[in-house]
Computed example of a mutant assay.
Amino acid sequence: MPRIHPAVRAAFRVTGRVAPPLALAASYRAFRTIGAPAPVRTADRAVHERARRGELRVAGERVVTYAWGDPAGDPVLLVHGWRSRASRFARLVETLERSGRHVLAYDAVAHGDSTGRYTTILDHLAIIRRIADDAGPLAGIVGHSFGALAAGTAVTEGVDAATYTAVAAAPSFDALNDGFVRAIDLPATLHDRHARRVAARLFPDEPDPAARFDLFRHPVAAPALFVHGSRDREIPPASSRALHAAHPGSRLVEPDAGHNGVLDAPETLGAVLGHVTAGAVNSA
C-alpha cells in the first residue's frame, strides 16, 4: 500500500480505540478512495500518445482502451494496478511491440483517461473479458500489483491466455485488506470488521469474495511468471515467492527495483518477453 502520513495513522489508531464505528466508516471510505488520476509520466508520453485508442462502456462509465503494434500479431493484454494507468507499461509496450506482438491495455474505471470515481475488481474483470473476447485467445496477460490479481482471476474464470505474468502481485482480497489496515494503523481488533464491511458493500451479491479473489486458493492454470522488485515497500516480495511456490512449474524473477520501478527494469522486460515467447512456442 502507499505510504500513509503519520498524522493519518495516528488518527486511525486513536479513533479505532475510542470510537470504533467512526474509525470503520472512515477506513471504508479511505479504502474506496482512488483520488485524482495519475498523470502520464514524461518518459511514457510518446508511447501513450501514439496508441490507437478505443472505448468501452462498463458499469455506466467510459473506459479508454489502447493498442500498439501489429494488429495481426499475437495479442498481449496489460492490466495496470491501483491508482495507476496503462501508460505506466510504456517500456514493456515498446519491448513487446518490437517483437511483433499486438499490445493491448486500458485505463480502468476511475483511472487514467477513463471516467468514474470508484472501481472494483469486478469492473476489471468485465473489461478484461470484453477485450479478450474481441482480441481472441491471448498470447499473454500481464498484471501489475492489484492488476495482477485481476488478471489472474480472469484467467482462472475462463479468459483464454497462453501465459500469465504477475508483476509485484497483490495475491488476494485478504492480502489487500490486511495491507491496507496495517498501512493506516487501524487497531488489530477492527481488522476483521473492516474486511467484512468492504466485502458486504463492494460485493453485495458475492457470497465469499475472499475465497473467489485469491490466487493461492485458485492457482492460475496457464504457465506463470512472477516478477517482484526486491526493494518493494508496498507489497512484500515474500508475496510473490509464496505465489511461485503455489504455482508448480512457474518462474520467479526478483529485479533490484521498487514497486513501480520494477516495470522499467531490463530484467523484467526480458523475462516477460521470454515468457510470452515460450508460451507461443508451446501452444503452437
Rank of each mutant, 00 (worst) to 15 (best):
P2D: 15
A7D: 04
V8T: 14
A11E: 14
A11W: 15
V18E: 14
P20L: 09
S27L: 13
T33M: 08
I34S: 07
G35N: 02
P39A: 13
A43S: 05
G54D: 06
E55G: 08
E55N: 10
V64G: 09
T65E: 09
T65A: 09
W68V: 10
P75E: 13
V76D: 11
V79N: 07
R88P: 03
A90W: 12
V93N: 05
Y106T: 00
A108E: 13
D113Q: 00
S114C: 06
T119L: 04
L122G: 09
R130P: 01
I131W: 04
P137C: 05
L138A: 12
F146I: 15
L149V: 00
A154S: 08
E157I: 08
A162G: 10
Y164T: 11
V167D: 03
A170L: 12
A170I: 05
A170N: 07
I184G: 04
L190H: 06
R196L: 11
F203L: 05
P209T: 07
A211K: 13
H218Q: 13
P219T: 09
P219Y: 03
A222I: 01
P223G: 13
S230M: 01
R231L: 10
R231M: 02
E234A: 05
I235P: 03
I235D: 02
A242T: 14
A245C: 13
H247M: 01
H247G: 02
G258H: 09
H259K: 05
A265V: 00
L269F: 01
V272G: 03
H275V: 07
